[in-house]
Amino acid sequence: MASVQQLSTKHVLGIKYLTPADVELILDTAREFKEVINRPIKKVPSLRDITIANLFFENSTRTRISFELAEKRLSADTVNFSASSSSVKKGESLLDTVNNILAMKVDMVVMRHPAPGAHHFLSNKIDASIVNAGDGTHEHPTQALLDAYSMRDALGGELRGKRVCIFGDITHSRVALSNIFCLQRLGAHVRVCGPPTLIPKHIGSLGVEVSHDVQDSLAWCDVANVLRIQLERQDTKFIPSLREYNRYFGITKERIDRLDKPIVIMHPGPINRGVEIDTEVADSEHSIILQQVENGVAVRMSVLYLLAARRNDL
């Protein structure tokens, strides 16, 4: 008989709250959804009786479109909300906003919020399943899952024993934290590399290596996940200039050319070309940046599908 396996959790608030088995289940299910989104008719009826609210209290292009497509391809009904054009501007609290939306019979909430922990707070107050689409500098679980999926694809299977280095602004990145948790659950070795000012002081306690040498880290890793310099989250100067950052920490063509081994280059977007990564590298044969975007839809379909499957037994 087919196995009945399901997620251990009702919400996806962060990779920290998922078990290794959860991560495997999401990635394995995503593989079948990737087949679905490459069919002539890219739609399955699984979530036809589910309504999902996409609440974006912070700007987003990729994640928002990706979630919306995932929902539509699962046949869910969707409503969209963005803080800039809503009653939040009139002083409504987060809980009131969400409760008002849920009063209209919404089953699941996909939310991006600038405050770390906003999703955790909500999960204790409301019944609907919550998917974190990014909370401040804390976690961005679906990005980490799609990164892991793309890495497995590019490396031909298992990540156990593989080496992944995350380059760039680790301090201000929710992608970095989620990636670290996710890769560790899949058995990969993780290193972070960037200027000392952009690497949290105690990040070593998570069991990751720390390096400030880009060339050495490129030589060490199978996959380089390059993060953006998040100028909008930096209230003081962490680096002297973007030009200097590119010179000392950028993933340049010259640095890649010096490697005598294959390497997979990733970037969660949006890219600042010429700052953290050179155009020649971003568009090279090493890069899987656009595959990441495609895989994002399949992985988000998988997360929403598996969460919807849990609704009835809670």
């Binding site: 008989m1 196995s3 009945v4 399901q6 394995d28 299910t29 598996l306 919807a308 009835n312 037994d313």
Partner: peptide, 8 residues
Amino acid sequence: RTKQGPLK
């Protein structure tokens, strides 16, 4: 979405 239904 019922317990009998396979998910995988």
